[in-house]
Design a protein around this nucleic acid. Structure first.
Length: 467
RNA sequence: GGCGCGGUGGCAGAGUGGUUAUGCAGCGGACUGCAACUCCGUGUACGCCGGUUCGAUUCCGACCCGCGCCUCCA
């Protein structure tokens, strides 16, 4: 099996070759914590969560770093609007982010560095760039990166540096030498948040923190750097410029970028104000439905957030849980024990091909069919298949709920409906059935159906779920 | 305008130079008191036009359409 990864830098899938045998160092650009995480953040979080889970399942020693941007203009503006210290805002938003991640089953990264925890590293890197003439202090106290000193600028996003120059706007009162130059360090005014530096009191620019933190934790060259769809330019382009100028070495071997989330077929953006926060979404949909939805298309494809698509995701998950319903006690198989399974092989083949989760799910659905067939003929064999299905699900972080609980709450986050009441009606219907009072029995079925509850009779008795 | 991505059956969404994706929905059948669940069967799918080929949805070229980045946004 060969792992292939689509590399934004090369614009093609490449066979993955680690720097250190058996080891993968991964850095993903995390959240700027000035507001609640939205569904677009969720996609990046989930994509790299599934990716790291999969890589580890295959024996890779993964070091996963995802930063938190906790000092930034947007944070300061929002804190100002709220009339609170920015540290209170960021503390609250970080806590909320962790809550959202836990709800979605996103495992914590190995390191979660914060920009404010690496000010010294940032200053050291900026100093390095200034000393090597890759950066300069402007009259207003800001420090800028000198883009024209880095001829490879644009190699990640495939942009021509000259065209960037001609397209750039000239701002009035510009203190930069070149409109393409970007801030490494921003001077702080009276009373502003700031740290002492060789260039006066100030705070880091956005791009430099990722260069500093990734280098600090993973070294000057590491394997994979990931992020959202809008990051290749300018953020990651600037990171490359900073890091490679500072170290003289290749910064990153593989660049990975998730696809965009659209909302009802429109671009989701701050300016359109059509974004959904994770917590809003989880009020309506079971976290696993959201997780499955976001993993049910390839991580690089655009995905459309809509009610219809979420409902469809729920129905797809229900098929899994219907199959697992009688096997809730069966523990997931050890991956080592299912290496010979054709389903497992298909699963691995799909995931090795640039993490094709959708294709992986299709192997799992085929497994479900065999499981359902076996369930009638050979319960023990069916249980073996259930264990295998759970093992595959666990690699992607799905199918980890109790099947009955999932089916009975309809994949909806919380339903306060009285289950005792349902059970009582089912008992009454059972009596009616025994008395061949089918009119009453069907009446109860209809009554419950109107409440969104579907009854399923079987030899073992009547079960119910929410539709 | 520059760079890039994509147009697949009713919908969602993979993939492939010749053989079933998968899921949801639909239809027929089995099962069921009736249902549901499940199983079996079922649908002349690959934007348009050329080219390469014994053969293209799959490769190449042109065209049409949609989308993203180029500006804060994951």
């Amino acid at each position: 099996m060969t792992l292939k990864i689509y590399n934004t830098l090369k614009r093609e899938k490449e066979v993955f070759r680690p720097i250190h045998e058996g080891k993968i160092d991964l850095y993903v650009c995390g959240i700027t914590v000035y507001d609640y995480c939205h569904i677009g953040h969720a996609r990046v979080l989930l994509a790299f969560d599934a990716i790291t889970r999969y890589l580890r399942s295959q024996g890779w020693d993964v070091t996963y770093v995802r930063n938190i941007t906790d000092i930034d203009d947007r944070i300061l503006v929002r804190a100002g609007e709220n009339g609170e210290p920015y540290t209170e805002l960021t503390a609250r938003m970080i806590a909320a982010m962790h809550e959202d991640e836990r709800a979605l089953g996103v495992l914590p990264p190995d390191h979660e560095p914060r920009a404010t925890g690496h000010i010294d590293d940032i200053i050291a890197m900026v100093s390095n760039l200034v000393n090597n003439h890759y950066a300069y202090r402007a009259d207003n106290g800001d420090v800028y990166y000198r883009v024209k000193r880095f001829p490879e600028y644009g190699k990640l996003s495939n942009k021509n540096p000259d065209e960037l120059l001609s397209g750039a706007r000239i701002e009035p009162g510009e203190v930069k030498e070149d409109p393409r130059d970007f801030a490494l360090w921003k001077a702080a005014g009276e009373g502003d948040v700031g740290w002492e530096s060789p260039w006066g009191r100030g705070r880091p620019g956005w791009h430099i923190e990722c260069s500093a933190m990734s280098t600090c934790l993973l070294g000057e060259t590491f394997d994979i750097h990931g992020g959202g769809p809008d990051l290749p330019f300018p953020h990651h382009e600037n990171e490359i410029a900073q890091s490679e100028a500072a170290t003289g070495k290749t910064f990153v071997h593989y660049w990975m970028h998730a696809g965009a989330v659209r909302v009802d077929d429109e671009k989701m953006s701050k300016s359109l104000n059509n974004f959904f926060t994770i917590r809003e979404v989880l009020k309506t949909y079971h976290p696993e439905v959201v997780r499955y939805f976001l993993l049910s298309s390839h991580y690089r494809s655009p995905i459309n957030y809509s009610e219809a698509n979420l409902i469809e995701a729920r129905q797809g998950l229900e098929r899994f849980y219907q199959a697992l319903r009688d096997y809730s006690e069966v523990p997931p198989a050890a991956l080592g024990d299912i290496k010979g399974s054709a389903y497992y092989r298909r699963f691995v083949e799909a995931m090795d091909d640039d993490f094709n989760t959708r294709e992986a799910f299709s192997a799992m659905y085929d497994l479900v069919r065999e499981l359902n067939t076996q369930a009638r003929e050979d319960r023990e064999q069916a249980a073996v298949l259930a264990a295998e299905l759970k093992a595959l699900g666990a690699v992607l972080g799905v199918l980890e709920s109790d099947p009955v609980a999932f089916l009975q709450n309809g994949g909806v986050a919380e339903q306060g409906d009285a289950d005792e009441d349902v059970e009582a009606l089912i008992a009454e219907r059972e009596t009616a059935k025994q008395n061949k009072d089918y009119a009453r029995a069907d009446g109860i079925r209809e009554e419950l159906k109107a409440r969104g509850i579907v009854l399923e009779d079987s030899r073992e008795g009547t079960r119910w779920r929410r539709a």
